[in-house]
Design a protein around this nucleic acid. Structure first.
Length: 424
RNA sequence: GCCCUCAUCGUCCAGUGGCCUAGGACGCCGCCCUUUCAAGGCGGAAACACGGGUUCGAAUCCCGUUGGGGGUGCCA
């Protein structure tokens, strides 16, 4: 039997990270088993039936690399089928009218249960399940009915969704039984993603939309990688790896049951690691949308130095701003500490201006000459480079100095050194 | 309230009766490396919620307690 899974978001206008995780696990399972993934938009609620609300969700899924084989289908398009099912249930006596709505008749006793892949056996006493609405008084089918019927019609074999759906299970199962379509569908309820309060992740948490992370410089493979680690583990000690390897190792049975805190710090770490693994050109193009100047003119080695200092793509701009600016923006504190109040700053600036005027313009030589200047005044290189760094880049931290000077060029370097000396 | 469910370091995971004086990762602290900052290396603090069983032996199985979460709509 071929696996058929589905991801069925409601069109809220954005992809919630919890939903993204659900989508990812469905996708992983489909890919790991050679199955098929269906995308269905659950828009039975009229207020959510707006095509533009779907676009963002589709974009976010695509960005994450979560592809679907069928769909997107729109649940609202199946309205006739849903109406027919309700009529059938009415005719067979399984459902009845109530205040204009239609409710399913639930047995007084007995239990309804299933074997959940991640949680084991779960059972509800029918006595605790009330007759529930399957068609609203305005004639529209409810989620409970539409969802169950669509899954049957689509031949879904594995329902993989959030734990918050567990309580709907007896109703869906009872409905399916009334329809004579219970079948042998496999259910897997994933643990919830929670905030620091251990509550279901909601807008109150901060950034719950996947696109927010994209905007903040998180790269798709890192986002997906991190999401895969919430509730599941590859079984070895390697957490950060390409999605293809995750697909290879993914098994639904390995998903565990307790909820997981969505930790942006660890996400950031995963992101930095993925970023560092990129080749120079891949890094350049990843950074492009986040940086006002392309990194195309910079040598590979220098790009690597930037990469090493990048946790999110947003980190790059401030790392190279001094290079592209007419003049560096000098941080007052850095100036006070390393130049105005730094040891031998004036002598070092003057010395560098002289030493660099005729130096072969490559980092090793620039390095050597400044080291000599430092020795002359009894300073180690760490101290000696400080005033030069501030004069040229405006701050005390940044990419390696001599490589930076090489990239900046002799004229601009000397101009900045002279300007700094003049300011003293 | 009722129903369902979860319970290993602060966090995410490993662990499915003996390999556990509980392992990895993030974060944190220290040291090393060093041209600042990073990256990297090394080391450290840090957990089996509690109480009963079962067993020669329990983080692992069972029961209970406590705590957390989810649900309880003519939303999805």
């Amino acid at each position: 039997m071929t696996v058929r899974v589905r991801f069925a978001p409601s069109p809220t206008g954005y992809l919630h990270v919890g939903s993204a995780r659900t989508a990812l696990f469905n996708w992983l399972y489909a890919r790991a088993t050679g199955g098929t993934m269906l995308l269905r938009i659950e828009d039975t609620d009229a207020s959510r039936n707006q095509p533009d609300l779907v676009t963002n969700i589709l974009d976010a899924l695509t960005w994450l690399g979560i592809t679907w084989d069928e769909g997107p289908q729109f649940q609202s398009a199946h309205a006739d089928r849903h109406r027919g099912v309700v009529e059938g249930l009415l005719a067979s006596g399984h459902a009845y009218h109530d205040d204009g709505a239609v409710r399913l008749r639930v047995p007084e006793d007995g239990v309804t249960g299933w074997d959940d892949v991640v949680r084991g056996r779960i059972e509800f006493e029918n006595a605790h399940v009330e007759d529930f609405v399957i068609r609203r008084s305005d004639g529209s089918p409810t989620f409970l009915l539409a969802n169950a019927v669509d899954d049957v019609d689509a031949g879904i074999t594995h329902v993989i969704r959030g734990e918050d759906m567990i309580n709907n299970m007896p109703k869906q199962l009872l409905l399916l039984e009334a329809l004579g379509a219970r079948g042998d569908v496999v259910y897997a309820h994933l643990p919830l993603l929670v905030d620091e309060q251990r509550r279901k992740l909601s807008k109150r948490f901060g950034d719950v939309a996947v696109e927010r992370y994209r905007e903040r410089g998180i790269v798709a493979p890192a986002m997906a990688n991190y999401l895969a680690l919430l509730g599941w583990s590859p079984g070895d000690d390697v957490e950060i790896r390409p999605m293809a390897e995750i697909v290879e190792r993914f098994r639904l049975e390995d998903v565990h049951a307790s909820s997981a805190f969505f930790d942006v710090r660890k996400l950031t770490h995963v992101n930095a690691t993925h970023l560092r693994a990129l080749g120079p050109d891949a890094f350049r193009s990843a950074v492009a949308p986040f940086c006002s100047h392309p990194l195309d003119g910079l040598p590979d080695d220098y790009v690597r130095a930037l990469q090493e200092r990048t946790q999110t793509l947003c980190d790059v701009e401030p790392l190279v701003a001094w290079l592209f600016a007419e003049e560096p923006v000098v941080d007052p504190d850095a100036w006070a500490r390393a130049v105005a109040g730094g040891p031998h700053a004036e002598a070092l600036l003057a010395g560098a201006i002289a030493a660099y005027a005729d130096a072969p313009w490559e980092s090793a030589e620039l390095h050597r000459r400044l080291a000599e200047l430092g020795e002359a005044v009894g300073l180690k290189l760490g101290k000696a480079q400080a005033p030069i760094r501030v004069a040229v880049t405006g701050t005390t931290v940044g990419p390696p100095l001599f490589e930076s000077l090489e990239v900046l060029g002799r004229e601009r370097t000397l101009a900045r050194l002279r300007a700094a000396r003049a300011r003293l």
